[in-house]
Amino acid sequence: MHLNTSLPNKKAMWIDCGIHAREWISPAFCLFFVHYSLSFYNVNTEMTRILDNMDFYVLPVMNPDGYKYTWTNRRMWRKNRSPQKGTSCIGVDLNRNFDANWCTTGASSNPCDETYCGSFPESEPESQAVANFLRSHKESIQIYLSIHSYSQMLIIPYSCSMDEAENHSELYEMVKTAADEIRRYYRNTYTYGAGAQIIYLAPGGSDDWAYNLGIKYSFTFELQDRGRYGFLLPPSHIQGACNEALLAVKTIVLKVMEKPQASMGSRQAGPAA
């Protein structure tokens, strides 16, 4: 979506969903976000200001072959569906396939494992396509966001190492504010912080790679829930999960818009309409 693109030096945000095939709430959010943005432009004050000042690149399903497979064959499939030489095992974990401490602790070199990192960084057409696009638009893309599930977390770099990001404090304050807003409006709790510190080491992730590329506002959201349903989140929870993620997106984008390199200032985000 591109609104008011005539603004000079207009920045952009990238959102991808469905990198892991079984995380169905993720593509649902990307479609929800596009629908909400188009429906509430010139209706919701914060969303109008955001869209007037920032372009959005939205990839609803980064792993289409794997996603389709979860609908037709194996609901809990995680990887893509690429054949691997020398083995009958199928697929690469696309979120271990980026060049960020690639295939170190937290990823597997075994093609049969769920966290298989691939034969080399960006070995997969999906990760390569995303990386090429981000490389070619890195001057304008200011925010990177990857949507996952589940566990209700707002994650900042790094996940690929125990190192702290250069602007760790700034990113941490953003996700803390977003989590506070979710708790305030929806009475739901989200954990927040650097991935390696609050979950586990996960090298080769798209968010860390994007951060190292120069996109200094890089995030991963883990949506509902905290384990009762897990990947099998019922349809009745879609609206609530998407409202929470939308509020977090709006909160973070408005914070980024306050920065000198953004088009203009902002104010606090409100709840989703």
Rank of each mutant, 00 (worst) to 15 (best):
N4E: 13
K10W: 06
A12Q: 13
I15D: 00
H20P: 00
A21E: 02
W24I: 01
I25S: 06
V34G: 01
H35D: 15
S37N: 05
N44G: 10
E46I: 08
E46L: 05
E46Y: 05
R49W: 11
N53I: 01
M54E: 04
F56Q: 04
P60G: 09
V61S: 10
Y67R: 13
K68L: 10
Y69T: 01
N73C: 14
K79C: 08
L94N: 03
N95K: 06
D99V: 06
D99Y: 05
N110I: 05
Y116C: 00
S119K: 10
N132Y: 04
S136F: 06
K138S: 12
I141P: 04
I143K: 00
Y144M: 03
S151A: 14
I156R: 02
P157W: 02
C160D: 15
S161L: 03
A165D: 04
A165C: 04
N167M: 08
R183S: 13
R187L: 14
G195D: 07
G195W: 07
A196N: 08
Y200H: 13
A202W: 03
G204E: 07
S206P: 10
A210C: 07
G214Q: 11
Q224Y: 12
G227Y: 09
G230M: 06
L232P: 03
A245V: 11
L246N: 11
L247H: 08
A248M: 01
V249K: 00
S263P: 00
R267S: 15
A273V: 12
